[in-house]
Design a protein around this nucleic acid. Structure first.
Length: 853
RNA sequence: GCCCCGGUAGCCCAAUCGGCAGAGGCAGACGACUUAAAAUCGUCCCAGUCAGGGUUCGAGUCCCUGCCGGGGCACCA
């Protein structure tokens, strides 16, 4: 046995000093860098654990404290389980706040950004997250954004990055365009809070809609591994609708207009058509019209564009529109349908034109009533739908059998199923049969087809701001696009010094004349002055971590093969749509380009909740902030981390008022004290130790791993507390501190605590006489022979009431337990005067007896 | 309006397959130690699981309805 181990100090005269522990162990980790992963021939299994990287705005806050505590539990857990764990960290360091701060203070955004990063980095180290500090990246480093530009050009080559002229979301405060995803449901910007307006601009897009089906369908493979909530949100967002496209011939127009509908069964009920006022089609349809029509359309278009988004989205708002004095022909009935323009039809959904079926669509009905347009019921929703295809005969109709309610009278469009009427060849069919049939008819005639459409729009990535990745495109004098050759990347940002960064609706980069004009192959070209949405930067950063210093490629394909996809991703639910959807999209693109062998970037996702105070989100304006560094000063890093894990299920919000970092601190002190009281030497045989404590320890060793793997960190911490309590009792009231079981239990506590309270655990490990670091120890296998209980308590219920408890062997046979139960005194007494009707035996736990009086 | 998640002790939360409602913590009470207090150690208190119905020998757990809370989507054809 080693004699170099320090004598355990007496627990009585040494107190738990978290300040000293933090100082001691943080410098040990800084010196030894135990979490650096080096490429080599380590053939242990691997885990890639990734926490969403922070935006460098000020210091870390309590939200960060939670993510990085929980992510670290998972990373440290897999290390204890013998895995090589890649756990990197970086900064998402491009973005508007840096630029706005720079404008306010008149400094270069770099200065603000990198000094914030330094501050956060120091806080992160203090927080003792087990990151591989050799892999730090910042998306605003030219070494990084060079490869963001590479990604753009790869997408450009594939036709997935393209420019189009379209109505876009314009933020009048930040003076930039926004993606649809950045506009909140109330029509305001998610960043500035300003009411977003529509503007027609030529912008760059990523063709994410081409991947809509895959983005939707592949969610199935994440079922059970991602929170159901996030899967639902993504499905909702992609919003696939199944239906049909139908071509309507337009009088006086050479080509037909195609509409999208989810209800092709109601085609015979179409009584007019509507086009979006801001669509090209609407403009074209009035082009040759009378001055009167043109004028009324122009006035209407103007008024709709003045309507704010919040008004426009109000479904209860009265319908508005103008008649365009044009007509379309219903392809199945030949009926002549007037064409209107109305803003309840959206230009960028479906085809921007609809057939209106007022009898069966509430919006169309509202419109028809307002403008006195005809309403024709084509689906009798009173008619029963049975398995057999019902047939409605002319006689039945004439006899007035099951007359449909009149939507014009009730004001309610008829939803639901029934039998088709007034629909020629569809009459008598149920809704679904009619859909199938009418699509067949349309396809035969060549005037329509099955189709699907999406709520998802292409991803607008241009931003008229300075602090972002420059778009690597140049234009000749005719405005033609010229891609910057790959070997000329990166297109670096010019210095912000002397540039007017104030938002003015066009890119500040355009004003950097020297930077913007280039000579390329003898031609004078101008650079695109826009920068990319920062979500492009973060859509692939998890790959860059695999080879962060490689200056020959975006990421090392062989390393990606080894480590990716990310096994465990940890972050806030606020990124449930945006970031995760984009990262999934880019992963699929890189798969298609042959760089990756997988199509989903994040195998498992953990969303932690928010840290709130008094039931409300913390905010500066509410004055209910809890400051990260103050909490660490007051309670210590380990107590704060432990509190985060113990507060409740990770996905729930933590109300800082409801939790007790003081309690965590006391518990850590209590656990730490054990390590000083253990009187046996390291390496001692545990076999002869106190049996109840040993059983508890091995139960613990068996129970904790599945708890961590199912993210029940709070329960795992409770288990540690129980074992600490039992050990305390064994020392004070049992066989005492020299019993080997006390050491075994305390070591198990130390290993488990290393996931939650690394400083305390390192110190305990050392006080137990071991060499650092506890973080790289192996979690002991539970000895299952110790887990077998000698006896269990079986209960005997009579008519649902517990009447007897029996100590029985766990392996007791069904019949024997029944016999034992029926023969026990309390049961015999309880059964007096009653007749047994039924006895259910579930050995070894329950005997349930039913009686009759 | 549609969809999803949740309601267990004063508070935060546990409870494999449906099988004794309580693991852990906070707060509270009491005791030991102390001149006293803090710290520490120990003991104790507290709900029948939002409401109503159903299935079952047995329901916190499964099913239905409703109430309350949280979240997502919403003039998306």
């Amino acid at each position: 046995m080693k004699t170099s181990a320090p004598e355990p100090e007496s627990g009585d005269n040494v107190s738990y000093d978290f300040v000293a522990l933090e100082a001691k162990w943080s410098s040990w980790w800084e010196k030894h860098q135990p979490f650096t992963v080096v490429a080599g021939e380590d053939d242990r299994p691997r885990k890639y654990v990734l926490d969403m990287f922070p935006y460098p705005s000020g210091d870390l806050h309590m939200g960060h404290a939670e993510v990085y505590a929980l992510g670290d539990v998972v990373a440290r857990y897999w290390r204890l389980r013998g895995f090589q764990v890649l756990h990197p960290i970086g900064w998402d360091s491009f973005g508007l706040p840096a630029e706005n701060a720079a404008i306010k203070r008149g400094v270069d955004p770099r200065q603000w950004t990198y000094s914030n990063i330094d501050q956060q980095k120091a806080s992160m180290k203090r927080y003792a997250a087990s990151f591989d500090w050799s892999r730090v990246l910042h998306t605003s480093d030219p070494e990084y954004y060079r490869w963001t530009q590479w990604l753009f050009l790869k997408m450009y080559e594939k036709g997935l990055a393209y420019r189009k002229d379209s109505w876009v979301n314009w933020d009048p405060v930040d003076q930039t365009v926004l993606a649809n995803e950045q506009v909140l449901p109330d029509g305001t910007s998610d960043r500035s809070g300003a009411m977003v307006v529509k503007k027609k601009l030529t912008q760059w897009y990523f063709a994410i809609t081409q991947y809509a089906d895959r983005l939707l369908d592949d969610l199935n493979q994440l079922e059970g591994r991602w929170p159901a909530k996030v899967l639902a949100m993504q499905r909702n967002w992609i919003g696939r609708s199944q239906g049909a496209e139908v071509d309507f011939v337009i009088e006086g127009r050479p080509t037909p207009v195609t509409i999208f509908t989810t209800r092709p069964d109601t085609l015979f009920g179409a009584t007019f058509m509507v086009v979006a006022p801001d669509s090209d089609l609407a403009a074209e349809l009035v082009e040759d019209g009378t001055e009167e029509v043109k004028a009324s359309f122009a006035a209407y278009l103007e008024s709709t564009q003045k309507a704010s988004e919040i008004d426009r989205q109000d479904a209860s708002r009265e319908k508005t529109g103008v008649f365009l004095n044009r007509y379309g022909i219903n392809p199945v009935s030949g009926e002549r349908l007037p064409i209107w323009a109305a803003d309840y039809v959206l230009a960028d959904y479906g085809t921007g034109a609809i057939m209106a079926v007022p009898a069966h669509d509430q919006r169309d009905l509202d419109f028809a009533k307002k403008f006195d347009l005809p309403v024709r019921v084509v689906l009798d929703t009173n008619a029963p739908v049975t398995g057999a295809i019902p047939v409605v005969t002319e006689e039945m109709l004439e006899a007035g059998d099951l007359p449909p309610a009149d939507p014009l009278v009730t004001g309610e469009a008829l939803a639901g199923d029934g039998r088709m009427i007034n629909s020629g060849p569809l009459n008598g069919l149920s809704k679904n049969n009619a859909i199938t049939r009418v699509i067949e008819l349309l396809e035969e005639a060549g005037t329509g087809r099955a189709a699907k459409t999406y709520r998802l729009r292409d991803w607008l990535i241009s931003r008229q701001r300075y602090w972002g990745t420059p778009i690597p495109i140049m234009y000749d004098e005719q405005g033609n696009e010229v891609a910057v050759p790959f070997d000329q990347l990166p297109v670096t940002l010019p210095s912000g010094e002397g540039l007017d960064l104030r938002p003015k609706g066009s890119s500040p980069l355009g004003a950097a004349k020297e930077w913007a004009s280039v000579t390329h192959e003898g031609k004078k070209l101008t650079r695109d002055a826009d920068t990319m949405d920062t979500f492009v930067d973060s859509s692939w950063y998890f790959l860059r971590f695999l080879s962060p210093h490689d200056d020959t490629q975006a990421f090392d394909v062989a390393e990606a093969e080894k480590w990716a996809p990310v096994d465990q991703y940890v972050g806030g639910v606020e990124h449930a749509i945006l970031h995760l959807l984009y990262a999934r999209f880019i992963t699929k693109v890189l798969f298609d380009l042959g760089y990756l062998s997988f199509t989903e970037p994040f195998t498992s996702l953990l969303n932690q909740g928010m840290v709130i105070l008094d039931g409300a989100k913390m905010s500066k304006s509410k004055g209910n902030l809890v400051y990260f560094s103050q909490e660490l000063d007051a309670y210590g890093v380990d107590a704060v981390r432990l509190t985060m894990a113990f507060a409740g299920p990770p996905e729930d919000d933590i109300d800082w008022r409801d939790v007790s970092p003081v309690g965590s601190q006391k518990f850590l002190a209590r656990a730490w004290r054990l390590s000083g009281e253990v009187e046996s030497k390291p390496g001692i045989e545990f076999g002869a130790g106190d049996a109840p404590l040993r059983r508890h320890t091995h139960r613990f060793l068996a129970d904790v791993p599945p708890l961590i793997e199912s993210f029940k960190f709070n329960v795992a911490v409770a288990r540690i507390m129980e074992l600490v309590n039992h050990t305390r009792k064994t020392i004070d009231q049992g066989p005492g501190a020299s019993n080997p079981a006390v050491r075994e239990a305390t070591e198990a506590v130390t290993l488990a605590l290393s996931m939650f309270a690394p400083h305390t655990a390192e110190d305990m490990w050392e006080r137990l006489g071991h060499q650092p670091t506890v973080a790289l120890q192996k979690w002991p296998e539970a000895d299952h022979s110790l887990l077998v209980e000698e006896s269990v308590t079986a209960i005997v219920q009579i008519d649902g009431k517990v009447r007897q408890r029996l100590e029985v062997a766990p392996s007791i046979a069904r019949d024997e337990l029944e016999k034992l139960a029926l023969e026990s005194e309390a049961v015999i007494r309880a059964l007096e005067g009653k007749t047994i009707v039924q006895v259910v035996v579930r050995a070894p736990k329950v005997v349930s007896i039913q009686t009759q009086p």
